[in-house]
Every structure is written in structure tokens, then in C-alpha cells.
Nucleic acid binder design. Structure first.
Length: 199
DNA sequence: CGGCTTTGACCAGCGC
DNA sequence: GCGCTGGTCAAAGCCG
């Protein structure tokens, strides 16, 4: 976590949700950070609990603890891959019954936030493609896909029945494009730079 | 009108 | 083989 995303060559990979009327800064992950973890067999090296724990009472942003006004109470990571036969070298896709069956190695990680809203503003645009009632849970699980045409990242959102204030978000895959909100912020600056360069 | 959500149907995996 | 469960599809409807 020593890497500063703003100084690296990597575009931001993911923004953690911050639910305080969207006033808190986002938390940036870079592809290299996640890829490094994936190469090592998962994301378990990231100390999510420490990063988001109440003791730290803050949110890591660009290598520093930023605004403490966060509702993120804790986080966890999952290093399992999408393929269910344990062969992590297996990289194939096949169609069964007209539907795509993916056995591709896909990093997944989850965290939970305390929020009244199910939809967390993580900076990316998502399209809901399904909702399903799950066993032992009062609330349905919602399925989202990133709307970027080249991006295959998905996320699942589910509210805990034990503690209705907690929303569990599971991300699957890595964004292959910059965060849209970041680009929205940077675009005027880039245009100004381009304009000044013409002088 | 395009993008998004809703929702029932469909499919695959798994346990028995 | 059957039933259960989770994940996805896709048509219909909604909304700005």
C-alpha cells in the first residue's frame, strides 16, 4: 500500500464506496496493486481489516489516511478465483446451452459498508442485470455489470439480514479503463493544459 | 429514444 | 435423476 496511485502510471482500478453523501474522497486501487496480489495467489496480503478498521478511524487515500468521515467499518478479501475446479492455469471459455460458461481466472474481493443505500458510488457506472433472493437472507442479492463496453467487471450487492445496516459488496474482475468520475474531474484540466500548450 | 431497472424464465452446478 | 440454489438472460416497462 506504499504506492501512490496518482503518481503511478496505472489508472485507478477501483474506488471503494464512501457513503457520506458522497462528500468523502474515494479510495484508489491500482491495477498493479491488484495484479501483484493476484500473481501471488490472491489478494490476501492486503490487510483490509487494518485499512478500514475503526482503530485507524480513517480511509487510505493516495497513501495517506484521509477523511475520517467514513462509514466503512471493516473489509475482507477473497482470493478465490471464478473457476471451480482449482486449476488456476485454466484459461478457457466455452458455451453450454447457448450461454457462456466462464472458467477464466477472475480475482474477486468483497467488503462491507454500513450504509442506508444499497447502491454505493464507487466512481464507475453499473448496469443492474439481475436480482435474486438468496437462502438465509431476507434481502435479495443484486447483480451489476460495469457499463463500459470493454469492461467485464461485475459486482454483487447484498444487505445483511443479521444487521440490516450493513451492505456487502463483492467485486469480480479488474476494470480495464479509468474511473469515469476521475476522468470527469481531469478532463477540464487536460483541456486547459492542451489550450495552454498551444499558446 | 436511449439507457436503465425489473422480473420471470432459463441454465448449470451440486448434494442427495 | 431430481430438487435446490445461485447466476444470467432477455423482454417489458420506466424515466430523463
Amino acid at each position: 500500500m506504499e504506492e501512490n496511485p496518482m503518481e503511478s502510471q496505472d489508472p485507478p482500478l477501483m474506488l471503494s464506496p464512501v457513503q457520506n453523501n458522497n462528500t468523502s474522497p474515494p479510495f484508489l486501487f491500482t491495477p498493479s496493486m491488484v495484479q501483484k496480489q493476484a500473481d501471488q495467489g490472491g489478494l490476501s496480503d492486503i490487510d483490509w481489516g487494518t485499512l478500514f478498521s475503526a482503530q485507524n478511524n480513517g480511509l487510505l487515500l493516495n497513501g495517506e489516511y484521509a477523511n475520517k468521515e467514513t462509514n466503512i467499518e471493516c473489509a475482507s478479501s477473497s482470493s478465490f478465483m471464478a473457476d471451480n475446479n482449482g486449476d488456476q492455469e485454466l484459461e478457457k471459455e466455452k458455451r453450454k446451452g447457448g450461454r457462456l460458461k466462464r472458467t477464466t481466472r477472475v480475482p474477486r474481493f468483497a467488503f462491507q459498508t454500513r450504509s442506508a443505500d444499497d447502491i454505493l458510488d464507487d466512481g464507475y457506472r453499473w448496469r443492474k442485470y439481475g436480482q435474486k433472493a438468496v437462502k438465509n437472507n431476507t434481502y435479495p442479492r443484486s447483480y451489476y455489470r460495469c457499463t463500459h463496453h470493454t469492461c467485464t467487471v461485475k459486482k454483487q450487492v447484498q444487505r445483511l439480514s443479521k444487521d440490516t445496516g450493513i451492505v456487502v459488496t463483492t467485486y469480480e474482475g479488474i476494470h480495464n479503463h479509468p474511473c469515469e468520475k476521475l476522468m470527469e474531474t481531469l478532463t477540464p484540466l487536460l483541456k486547459q493544459i492542451q489550450f495552454l500548450a498551444t499558446l
